[in-house]
Design a protein around this nucleic acid. Structure first.
Lengths: 227, 227
DNA sequence: TAGATTGTTAATCGATTAACAATC
DNA sequence: TAGATTGTTAATCGATTAACAATC
C-alpha cells in the first residue's frame, strides 16, 4: 500500500502568517520581552485581526490562557514542531557562484533545522576551492555522496540556462526535494517536490508600487498646479 | 491636497499568478511557440482552473478572441504595463557581501525595468573594490548620491544585525522604497515602503513538506510490516 | 470580584468555480 | 456551419471577521 505523497496541506498564507508570528514572538523572547504574548499584541504589530491570530494559533495547537495570553515559549515551540524545524534535515548546495557562496556561508539555516553538508559545481576552476566550511566538489560526486549520506534537499544556485540539466542530475541522484533559486522553472517527475523562489515576484510587487506612487505624485502635481 | 499614498492594490495572490502567466507566455514566445495562447493551456500547466485565468487576464486588461485565444504578445505587454516594468526604475545595493555581489552581477533585473546604479558598503576593506560593473562606495556617499541621481529602490543585502541601522540611513538619504534581503525586519516611517524577502518562509514550506513525507514513509513502513 | 483575554459559533465577505451565453 | 474559446453572471466555497460565551 503506497503512502500517498500528500502535497502541502497548510495553506501557503497560513504558513506565512505562522512564520510571522514565530519571528515576532522569538524576537520578543530574545529581547527578554516577557513570558507571555497576547493575540492583540501580535495582531497590532502585523496589522491584522486578532481573531485570526487566535484561530491560527489554535490550528497550530497552541493553547492560550484567558486573561493572560499565550506562553511565548509555547508559541515558538509549537510552530517549530508543526513545521518540522526540530526534525533535522540535510541539504547540499549546487552552484558555487556568488549566490551559492552566500548560501554556504549563511549561518541562519541551522535555526530551522537545515544543515548544509556539501557544495557542488561543475566549473573546473571552482572545484577544490574552499567556500566557508565546504570544499567545492564536482557534480560527478553527487550520486555517490547522495548514496552514502542523506540529502533531503538540493539547493539550486546555478544560472538559469543550466538549471534544468542540473535539476535532472539532482533527481537522478535520488534527491526528491529541490529549492530552486535559478530564474527559470525546472520540470521534474511527479514524485519530486520543487519550491521555486521567484525573485521577480518580489520585484514585480515593488515595481507595481512605484508605478502607482509615480502616478499619484503626477496627479498631486497637477492638482497643485490647478489651485 | 496630498495624494494618498495607496498601498498595493493588486492582491499578492493575483500579482503572483500574473507573474506566472507572464513567465509561461514569455518563455513560450521565446521558444517560438506560436502567436496565441489559450486560458486552458495556461491553466493546465499551472494546475489551476481556466476560468480563473480568464478572470485574471481580463483584470489585467487583456482581451482574448473566442475560438483563438489570447495574443501571446498582448498578454506579455499588458502585464508588463500593468506592473510597471516599462517605467524604468533605478536602485542601489547596500551591502557588498556575497549576496550583494550576486545581486550586482545579476543581469536579470533589467528585464523588469530595474537598473542598478551603485553599490555601497561600510567595510573599509571593501570600499574601492570593483564588483561587476560597480565600485564599492562608502555609505557616507549615499546621501549625496541620492540627491544627485534618482534612487527609487534600496536593496538591502547586509547582515541582520545591522539591517535596522542601514535602513535608517537609507531612509535619511531620502529613499522611500526598500527591498530587504536581511533576515530581520526593519522599522521605517509610514511613508516608506518595505518589502521583506523572508527566506525562512520558503524554508518553512520545505521543512513542513519533508516532515510530512517522513511521517508518510514511516506509516507506509509500518503498514508493510503488518501485512 | 471585575476585567481582560481566549476560544468558538454565527455572519459576512471575497475569491473561486460552475454554468452558459456570446462570438469568431 | 459547427466547434472551440472567451467573457460574464450566478452559485459555491472557504477564509475572515463579528459577536459573545467561557474562563482565569
Amino acid at each position: 500500500m503506497a503512502a500517498n505523497l500528500t502535497p502541502l496541506e497548510l495553506k501557503h498564507a497560513l504558513l506565512e502568517r505562522l512564520m510571522h508570528y514565530y519571528h515576532f514572538v522569538a524576537e520578543k523572547l530574545d529581547a527578554g520581552g516577557g513570558e507571555h504574548v497576547t493575540s492583540t499584541q501580535i495582531a497590532e504589530l502585523l496589522h491584522m485581526d486578532d481573531t485570526l491570530v487566535r484561530k491560527d494559533l489554535a490550528a497550530a495547537g497552541v493553547r492560550g490562557v484567558p486573561h493572560v495570553g499565550y506562553k511565548a515559549e509555547e508559541v515558538v515551540n509549537r510552530i517549530r514542531m508543526l513545521l518540522g524545524f526540530d526534525e533535522g534535515y540535510q541539504g547540499v548546495i549546487i552552484g558555487a557562484g556568488r549566490m551559492g557562496g552566500a548560501m554556504a556561508s549563511y549561518q541562519g539555516f541551522s535555526r530551522y533545522g537545515l544543515k548544509i553538508t556539501a557544495l557542488f559545481d561543475n566549473d573546473p576552476g571552482k572545484i577544490g576551492l574552499i567556500w566557508g566550511d565546504y570544499m567545492v566538489q564536482p557534480m560527478g560526486n553527487l550520486p555517490l555522496f547522495a548514496k552514502n549520506s542523506t540529502v533531503d534537499i538540493a539547493i539550486l544556485t546555478v544560472p538559469g540556462d543550466v538549471a534544468q540539466v542540473v535539476a535532472s542530475q539532482v533527481v537522478a541522484a535520488g534527491v526528491r526535494t529541490i529549492w530552486n533559486f535559478a530564474n527559470t522553472s525546472v520540470a521534474v517527475p511527479a514524485n519530486v517536490f520543487v519550491r521555486h523562489e521567484h525573485i521577480s515576484v518580489g520585484l514585480a510587487g515593488l515595481s507595481y508600487f512605484l508605478k502607482r506612487q509615480r502616478a499619484d505624485e503626477r496627479a498631486a502635481a497637477e492638482n497643485a498646479a490647478e489651485d
